[in-house]
Design a binder for these strands. Sequence first.
DNA 1: CATGAATGAGACTTCATTCAT
DNA 2: CATGAATGAAGTCTCATTCAT
Lengths: 199, 199, 199, 199
Amino acid sequence: MKKTTKGADSKNKILEAAIDLFAEKGYRGTKISDIVKAAGLTQAAFYLYFSSKESIFQEILERFYMRLEEHLQAAVMPSAIEPGEFSMRIRRNIESILTIFQEHPKATRIFLTEERSIDEVEILIHQTIASNLKQHQSTGLIRNDLSPHMMANGMIGLFIQVTLKELLEKQRSPKDVANEITEVLLYGLAQYRPEGTGR
Amino acid sequence: MKKTTKGADSKNKILEAAIDLFAEKGYRGTKISDIVKAAGLTQAAFYLYFSSKESIFQEILERFYMRLEEHLQAAVMPSAIEPGEFSMRIRRNIESILTIFQEHPKATRIFLTEERSIDEVEILIHQTIASNLKQHQSTGLIRNDLSPHMMANGMIGLFIQVTLKELLEKQRSPKDVANEITEVLLYGLAQYRPEGTGR
Amino acid sequence: MKKTTKGADSKNKILEAAIDLFAEKGYRGTKISDIVKAAGLTQAAFYLYFSSKESIFQEILERFYMRLEEHLQAAVMPSAIEPGEFSMRIRRNIESILTIFQEHPKATRIFLTEERSIDEVEILIHQTIASNLKQHQSTGLIRNDLSPHMMANGMIGLFIQVTLKELLEKQRSPKDVANEITEVLLYGLAQYRPEGTGR
Amino acid sequence: MKKTTKGADSKNKILEAAIDLFAEKGYRGTKISDIVKAAGLTQAAFYLYFSSKESIFQEILERFYMRLEEHLQAAVMPSAIEPGEFSMRIRRNIESILTIFQEHPKATRIFLTEERSIDEVEILIHQTIASNLKQHQSTGLIRNDLSPHMMANGMIGLFIQVTLKELLEKQRSPKDVANEITEVLLYGLAQYRPEGTGR
DNA sequence: CATGAATGAGACTTCATTCAT
DNA sequence: CATGAATGAAGTCTCATTCAT
């Protein structure tokens, strides 16, 4: 074992234990004593690597965001896009995100579940989605009889729930889940669409 | 004023204070001392009416469920239903639920937000919705290329998020919100539906 | 025992225990657990009456300052004063302060010893003394070949030390100590004064 | 550079850092981790040179005492002394001590401020001064209507305070400060001395 | 019916000190 | 000679809960 490895090892052990516990019991339900116990260390060791309970929580989220952002670059939707490609791109973007989620299921659960985390980022995500929808309302790909904000909220809610239940709990493949999410989001549950009215 | 009024009054004061605080700060973030302070009583009084913090929380939820159930009787969807009526019935059912939610915004927030609460009931709701969907897959009203469970989860997530943001936060009318939810759920976000494939 | 007495009793017990311990071991050397042990209570009880360790410390000092101020009204020295009366007034003022000190020996020790306490007040006292001296330099009662600030500092230091050692430790009477302090302060240690030079 | 230089260097760095910090924040307010950080070393290195926090503190004081003692040899007052010379000798002795203090302001502050330090030595100093005063009460140079112990305490207090404020804080010259201390100590604050009584 | 007073158990955090390398 | 890593013991503060009145 290299010299420089040991400290980082311990820090990682603590981080992983913390991720597990935050995911399972939430921030408040998780005690530092539990974390270090799971990591095989003492309480004092915790403060060698993190300045507080809050700070390890933030570090976990930041690491998660970083990974997320890397993959989110690809998710940018060009403004000029053909109808035929549209659904495919969405499908791919969703799949790409779900793949990261699947690789970090615990962190994902924290991210999607813990109020302390989402609130800040959620607004950003919401705005991004809403303006995207608004744009494609003008390109004619998205129906324009509904409010973009409401649609964005609907998307987010649907996406969160399906991620938690289908991807993380049932452990279905990102591809499958992405397909179904895309289908439902774009075309809804109904077999047939009423003609004419309102679109 | 009846003899028994005073005690019931105090109990109600405590209950209402607790609903406010649980909604605002969550279960763990709410202290008994905060509740009784808001209710104008002492901590000891709390234990005259409730055996523990957990028990008042459950009582709040149960009261909420009761009100919910009364209105949910109407929401049962008959198995034979005409396509034209289908969307309207859903719309009405959703509106009826949102109306109760709107009348009890704090309790609704607790119910939809607090993990401790949903988990038990969520399964029940999920099953109800899923079997409903499954049934209408066979009547041909619901598309059958998607898993009922997944659709149910999507519905629930979308519904929760839109309720929280549009109904409770933006205070939009149950009718409007119900309309939009129904539209999105049934027909999706896309302006046009691809022909043929898979449905 | 009256109903309203018990709480105040406990608070006082804690206060007195704290005064004893702060005087003996200093602020940092005193643990809350020691204080409540001495008061016959548990740690949690401490926080019924004080919001923190720092706050009980401040409360002790404030109570002490209040008593001090009451008696310090009398200590104001009129500007026009006869030489014969001068030393007597100083003597009386010092005696009056020493009497309060004697009545609250523990609090006095905290006040005079603990850095956290004096620093704020010391500046005020210093200014008061210095301007008093300056004034009497012009009335001719105080020698004017020395800096008022330096004399003020000397007075304060002498006063503190003699209070601690002679009044509090040796338990000499305020009257005796006041006499000696006044004598030394005004006329110094030397038997004879050199004629002429420098005054 | 000698072989033994490196270790001694580190030890000195630690010592100096410790002196700075003890002077600034006091014994209890200073952490080993602060000391070694300021010295550019690790905590473990501290224990190569000192067995405990207490021990470095004592070592600092002892070094200070040693320097003090060297210069204090000169301060011994011969028993037979002429009145004219008396004040000058005191002046010189005080100046000589203040000069050492000025050369080691941090250590001086620790010595004069920290309770843990003074108590042991103070008694010695007190005794020396008191017996000196007693002696000169019999030679007639010191007034004999006051207790030598009380006078000694007064001297010490005055001396400490003036050293801290005038010498160390205002950075006045040892000579000036020594002059003023001597003047005040010997002849007091009053412009005129009352005739006759008691001396 | 209600309160004032108190507590047990535990949470987070700090710091001097040690040990293998 | 020096370090990185770890720890034991303690300290401050919080909170749900109890009990005598």
